[in-house]
Design a protein around this nucleic acid. Structure first.
Lengths: 189, 189
DNA sequence: CAAACAAACTAACAAGTGTTAGTTAAGTGT
DNA sequence: ACACTTAACTAACACTTGTTAGTTTGTTTG
């Protein structure tokens, strides 16, 4: 493990502040104070406030895209695929607690890369929906509107970042298996 | 139905803008433009930007508190109570699409009434958790960590505002019953 | 008609915004 | 010893922020 660069450190601290107050409410002076330097000094390491937000969000979005690509190409059953998706969210969320907040709350403040982000998200949702539709065809999954099922599962998974840090001793394995129970048993026939 | 006062109209339009960009990113000039007046003119009707946020959030939070109070005092089974909670969220969310966004994203920007809001929220969650715990004792509900179940159900319900407006012809009755299926069947033993 | 009110306006302010320019000082590699 | 890099600084910029003061205009009410 290479030590964190100053830039990465700034981005990490920024993500934490963004989680607490939201992107728009965090000023470069807030960020500088949290780093114990002056606002102008930040610009030795980063290009702009926008850039910080972009690198936080896009990096996570791409992790999800990659993860979904693995799931898509596995030849597990649809229920197994759902479990893989749950594990993916637990993994990505637990290693990006602060970034997930920015992704969920502040994606609309992306500018140059807004459309790219939206494409990643809608592709992800399409893959998700297709898994559900296949599962319904195969008789593995309840024949309820796939969009409602997807919405229900996905909003829970997308909000994990709110939840994981609350419990002192989150056992991620246990959380994953609890979510498997709760989310799947409502979907499986 | 009395016609909407100018103040209510401003608050309604503000909620819409808050949903799109978040409280902090919406300026009084944005709001004024959306109302087709000048920023200063807003102050004939409202006291401050803060006040707008407060009245949006607190009003909804109190609707949930009231609704939960009905549920608490009914003598239905725990599963029935869960269904009542789902119906409550569908009802409140569908009639406050924009306000729900502010409640979910911008509650931390409440100032004077932040603690009041937090109390309402934690009381609500305690009532919710107690219903689950009772249900587990009574053998109606799976013996999984109640907090994880609550988290899963509640984040789905809290995100309804993101979902409802997407579908052109949301049949709220149907949505409610789909959610009953999906959320409950994963919890019931 | 006169008084009161509702709802808009212009002008301004003090504070805060992201960002740039230019400088300094302490290491690091040759 | 030398240039290079890293990481901080001060000072300033043009612009935007929420908000206040004071005024004008049309409508309602006594």
């Amino acid at each position: 493990m290479k030590p964190e660069t100053r830039q990465q450190e700034i981005i990490r601290v920024a993500a934490k502040l963004f989680k607490e107050k939201g992107y728009s409410a965090v000023t470069m002076r807030d960020l500088a104070t949290a780093m114990n330097i002056k606002a102008a000094s930040l610009y030795n390491h980063i290009n702009s406030k926008q850039d910080i937000l972009e690198s936080i969000i896009i990096s996570i979005a791409e992790q999800f895209t990659e993860g979904m690509s693995s799931v898509r190409e596995s030849n597990a059953t649809c229920i197994e695929k759902l479990k893989e998706i749950i594990a993916l969210h637990v993994e990505v969320s637990s290693t990006n607690i602060y970034g997930m907040a920015a992704l969920n709350h502040d994606w609309m403040h992306l500018e140059a890369r807004l459309n790219y982000y939206k494409k990643l998200r809608s592709d992800y949702e399409n893959d998700f929906r297709n898994i559900l539709i296949e599962g319904i065809k195969a008789g593995e999954i309840s024949d309820i509107k796939p969009d409602v099922m997807m919405f229900s599962i996905l909003t829970t998974l997308r909000s994990l970042y709110l939840w994981i840090p609350k419990k002192e001793d989150v056992n991620l394995q246990e959380l994953s298996s609890n979510l498997n129970e709760i989310l799947i048993k409502g979907v499986i026939k």
